[in-house]
Design a protein around this nucleic acid. Structure first.
Lengths: 142, 142
DNA sequence: CTTAAATACTATAAAAAGGTAGTAATATAT
DNA sequence: ATATATTACTACCTTTTTATAGTATTTAAG
């Protein structure tokens, strides 16, 4: 499982938008480029706007743009907003009773695994993805 | 999200069984100890048996025991069996087209994060959990 | 001012995951 | 043999997640 489909979609959208250079992205355009179900994607875009990642403009020539600088948005932020609170921070066993001073059996192994993952996700911003994308492009051209 | 509830339950059950010293564990007993819904837990135990982690014996005094040595069962195995195929090995974006020679934008960041996690989960066996549990017990007693 | 291209809102449908119920089958103790 | 404690199987119900539909609203072009 790892992440919900909705979260995957959100990362896909933001990742795509971050690496291209359009002025504005309409839902229809993103749908065609990314193959995410049309109506579901629209709602998700609205959500991403209400979460503060995107800004929407209605009407003709409207669409979505980033509401923040790319370097301000990291992958962990997106995941946390979409999975609700701290999906990534929970005990692997979902034990509400599993806390630092009374950990469950798997606590230690899982914390180690998880914290590495969270660290990477937190350290990766959309700006990093853009940079990587452009570097890859240059490699292909040379 | 990270893992399904079913996967959490499975890890809880196996972790519990690994750290205690009963001869056999009935569904009813596990239900009382672990607070997993009675009927759902039963089905899950049957599944764990058919996946080869447990062996069941019917009838009076029946129940479940491990079908393999504790050191042969690691957390990644359990997760993979329950989440179906390779949940943990998928692209973060769920792109079927994302493969090593044509990776998606987030491939690299995600692979790094994920592989750390998979490594820990693969290296942690039920025998390790048992050992850790007994060490913790000794600490409390001293 | 009308039309067209867009987002916004709300309700509903479909699919998947989680959970329950009934009954059959099995095996042990007495 | 019978009663009891157990798992096994199958069908169904509930909740959550994913997806669709209809209609209203916004805005720019012509």
């Amino acid at each position: 499982m790892i992440f919900n489909k909705t979260t995957e979609y959100a990362l896909t959208i933001l990742g795509f938008m971050a690496t291209r250079n359009e002025n504005v992205y309409s839902a229809e355009y993103l749908h065609q480029q990314l193959n995410i179900p049309r109506r579901y994607l629209r709602r998700l875009l609205t959500d991403l706007a209400s979460h503060g990642f995107l800004k929407s403009s209605s009407g003709r020539n409207g669409g979505f743009i980033f509401a923040q600088a790319l370097k301000e948005i990291n992958l962990a932020m997106v995941i946390n907003k979409l999975e609700g609170s701290d999906a990534v921070n929970n005990c692997i066993l979902g034990f509400s009773c599993c806390v630092v001073d009374k950990p469950c059996i798997m606590h230690e192994s899982w914390m180690e695994a998880r914290s590495k993952m969270v660290e990477t996700l937190t350290n990766t911003t959309l700006a990093d993805l853009k940079e990587k994308y452009q570097m890859d492009l240059r490699k292909i051209l040379n």
